[in-house]
């Protein structure tokens, strides 16, 4: 695998330098080792802070979604590795505007442990924290073990909705409740065609034959549900919709948003081919589609593949989803 880089060890630091240099109106680096990104202009005094964090390699997740109406700060680890508890504590301190901070991130062992530890560290600074975990990947565990599921692209909806609630002046309890409701409303499933290479490892995260795909594969190459010959787009889309609709009830008159997301290398052309079937299936269920998102929202560097995320809305969630937000990767007016 060819990659454009200098030293693998400096991959993340150089990426962050470039990101902040390109978009100084949105992002600034904070913390002793510059591994937390905060809003260029902090939120209003008394606003609830929202932080996230996780490994690099998923842009726009996580760092990209720092901005007005979205996140306040984000801790960034090496590619696919958790940030340290100290870096997360830096992000929490940067996000704190005196009204407490929500930790909103994906359900991965290392991230959970470090964010819990970061909570212990900022307790000494009298910052109140709460936690909401994204566990939206239906292929990663059965419904009866839903708490073991991994968090994937559903976090984009949770960032948007919780971010808007915090911007609207809701208190920590309310922002946490709304974030949890958004997390609970999301279901995702992915399919991968080719792996990616972690710079420091220098070799692909998994091996797959040229003519094969893997259904249900995780965003870091975690094993999926089945591996077989690559299927036509419509068949892939039908199966992915089957898996989502088997996990969450969508009835006639329901309002849903749907994300058709590239894992990195898959071009928008192919996403739109898939979207035809997504639309047909949701129309068939009698659902109204609100603000469909088609593009690169949560990636795995150069992995080829796609994920679908369905977010079932109620009036409150829809209001916050449609509220304004701004960052280098996503603007809602």
């Amino acid at each position: 695998m060819k990659k454009i880089l200098n030293d693998p060890e400096s991959y993340v630091d150089e990426m962050l330098d470039g990101l902040c240099a390109a978009h100084p109106e949105f992002y600034r680096l904070v913390g002793e080792d510059k591994r937390a990104v905060a809003r260029a202009t902090p939120g209003a005094e008394g606003k609830v802070g929202i932080v996230t964090g996780g490994g690099s390699g998923h842009l726009p997740v996580f760092t990209g979604y720092v901005g007005p109406g979205l996140l306040d700060a984000c801790a960034i680890g090496q590619v696919f590795a958790s940030p340290s508890a100290e870096q997360m504590a830096d992000a929490i301190r940067a996000a704190d505007r005196g009204a407490g901070v929500l930790r909103l991130y994906g359900n991965y062992g290392g991230d959970v442990m470090n964010f819990d530890m970061a909570g212990d560290l900022v307790e000494m600074d009298d910052i109140e924290t709460t936690t909401v975990l994204l566990a939206d990947d239906v292929a990663s565990a059965p419904p009866e073990e839903a708490d073991k599921r991994r968090g994937v692209a559903g976090m984009v909806y949770a960032f948007k909705i919780a971010g808007a609630a915090a911007e609207a002046g809701k208190d920590l309890t309310d922002v946490t409740r709304i974030a949890q409701k958004a997390a609970d409303a999301c279901r995702s499933v992915g399919a991968a065609l080719s792996p990616c290479t972690v710079p420091q490892a220098g070799k692909p995260t998994f091996e797959i034959a040229e003519d094969e795909m893997e259904m249900g594969m995780g965003i870091h190459g975690e094993p999926g549900v089945w591996r077989d010959k690559l299927k036509p787009a419509d068949e892939i889309a039908e199966e992915m919709m089957d898996r989502l609709l088997a996990d969450i009830e969508v009835a006639s008159g329901d309002r849903v948003s749907i994300m058709v997301n590239s894992l990195g290398a898959t071009p928008p052309e192919e996403l739109y081919i898939l979207y035809r079937i997504v639309k047909k299936r949701l129309d068939g269920a009698g659902a109204d589609i609100v603000m469909p998102l088609v593009g690169r929202y949560a990636t795995s560097m150069e992995m080829a593949g796609v994920s679908f995320t369905l977010c079932k809305l109620d009036e409150e969630l829809e209001g916050y989803l449609k509220a304004p937000c701004d960052c280098a990767f996503w603007t809602v007016k």
Partner: peptide, 21 residues
């Protein structure tokens, strides 16, 4: 404990720091 939280974010490093704390 803080030495481990500073240099390492791996589960094992964080667990050791947790135990030391």
């Amino acid at each position: 404990a803080q030495a481990f939280t500073k240099v390492s974010s791996s589960s094992y490093g964080t667990l050791l720091a947790t135990g030391l704390m």
